[in-house]
Amino acid sequence: MDNIINKDIIDLLPHGEPFIFVDKIISVDGLNKITASRTINKNASYLKGHFPENPILPGVLLVESMAQTAGVICSYGASAGKKISSECNIYFLTRIVDIRFKHPVFPGSTLILKAEILNTFNDVVKTRVEAEVDGKIVAEGELVLSKTKQKRSQQ
């Protein structure tokens, strides 16, 4: 099994900078559960406008962090724990199901991002996702991702 815990996150996602919204993988449980983290940079440009004088992490970017975390475990599960950086197995977000934002996330916070595969059918994967800050759930819900035929770019 390929150890993805210490891998550079950029090798695990099809995304590139400046659109990487996960910092590192903390743990993987089997082929269907993952915990990752992301620290919100106080100087991120989007915080200047969201909102002036009252910066909080935009909910859509919180969803993106959860979706990227789910994407890693989908690719990892689909490749049965082998290398996931070289071949296809790219997952796109295809449905956002009932995501709830429970608390605002402030600059400097570290998000603990959890994703678990609930069901898979025909390259479509339903995941349960959660984001926590200091042990408190700040957002949760379900995301559906679908495998695409597209290949990862060879870097």
């Binding site: 295809t94 449905r95 025909n122 479509v124 339903k126």
Partner: peptide, 26 residues
């Protein structure tokens, strides 16, 4: 669409207590 297919499979399996094993059967 294909995401609906997943939702439908989950619902059928739960409601009738049966398995739809793969995409071909599905």
């Amino acid at each position: 669409d294909s995401v609906d297919a997943l939702e439908l499979v989950i619902a059928i399996e739960k409601e009738f207590g049966l398995k739809i094993p793969d995409a071909a059967v599905g």
